[in-house]
């Protein structure tokens, strides 16, 4: 099967193009509400890329957390604000140069790897790995989240 008739390759090309175009629009669109919308498009593109890599559970969490929740919050906040005039620092040439250099480096570094999924991440294996091998990190993460929750409740109750 040729590279172009492979559906995985086509989905990869479409989603990566969507991600890149969305990323450009996030930076360049003059309205911040539209930028937030393109952020959700970027999230969708990235979620498809995660799924193609063989991590469907990460892809779904990416979709629900970074698109479903985060973009709703961002839109929710910016919809209440007045549109601010955009300020553009005069470093366009530098930005283009750094993008070109980064592309070359990434191509050099990543060229030996293929886009085929190396393995399929099963959520059962992932959870058993988390509670057996990485249990300490899990407890630390849970405690950090709990602290953030307590902090949020304290701020919301205005007791400080």
């Amino acid at each position: 099967m040729s590279l172009w008739s492979n559906p995985i390759t086509m989905i990869f090309l479409l989603s990566s193009t969507l991600s890149i175009i969305a990323a450009i629009f996030i930076v360049y669109h003059k309205s911040i509400v539209y930028s937030a919308f393109f952020l959700s498009m970027l999230g969708v593109g990235n979620a498809i890329l995660f799924a193609l890599l063989g991590f469907p559970i990460i892809s779904l969490f990416h979709l629900s957390v970074y698109v479903g929740a985060a973009v709703t919050f961002i839109l929710f906040s910016v919809a209440m604000l007045k549109e601010a005039p955009s300020v553009e620092p005069p470093i366009k040439a530098l930005a283009v140069l750094s993008v070109i250099i980064l592309t070359i480096i990434l191509i050099k570094v990543l060229s030996p790897f293929s886009a085929e999924p190396s393995f399929f991440l099963n959520y059962r294996e992932l959870t058993s790995l988390l509670v057996t091998k990485y249990w300490f990190a899990l407890i630390v993460a849970a405690m950090a989240l709990m602290t953030a929750l307590i902090g949020a409740i304290t701020i919301a109750r205005r007791e400080v």
Binding site: V33, F37, S40, L60, L63, S64, V67, G68, A69, V71, T72, L75, F76, A79
Partner: peptide, 12 residues
């Protein structure tokens, strides 16, 4: 996950 995406468009 798919049901969480629609509220973005109500806010928009």
């Amino acid at each position: 996950t798919l049901t969480t995406l629609a509220p973005i468009f109500t806010v928009l």
